[in-house]
Amino acid sequence: MSRLVLKDEIIARLAGTIQQISCQTGEYVQEGETLFVLVSQEGETIPVISRVSGKVGELEVELGEDVIAGMILTVVYME
């Protein structure tokens, strides 16, 4: 029987620019790990953290790309 895999979307809370990408597709990440660093339009540096442990899905953004509020940056497939 296949196991239920829950995916958790990693979302940019604010509009801004992707300053750092700290994960790769297929990589296993831990809960609380910083996956992206976002610089908001006000210049605030915001870490985007995974709230679950699991495997990183396809990355939807690139370094230096502008993102909008609510945009899904990637997903983490929980075990």
Binding site: E9, I11, S22, Q30, G32, E33, V48, I49, R51
Partner: peptide, 22 residues
């Protein structure tokens, strides 16, 4: 792991990064 140590020690705020109400 070094990347996790900060959040493990000091924690993080409710819904601070994901926009979800966890």
């Amino acid at each position: 792991p070094e990347t996790l140590l900060e959040s493990e020690l000091f924690g993080y705020e409710k819904g601070a990064f994901t926009g979800a109400s966890t």
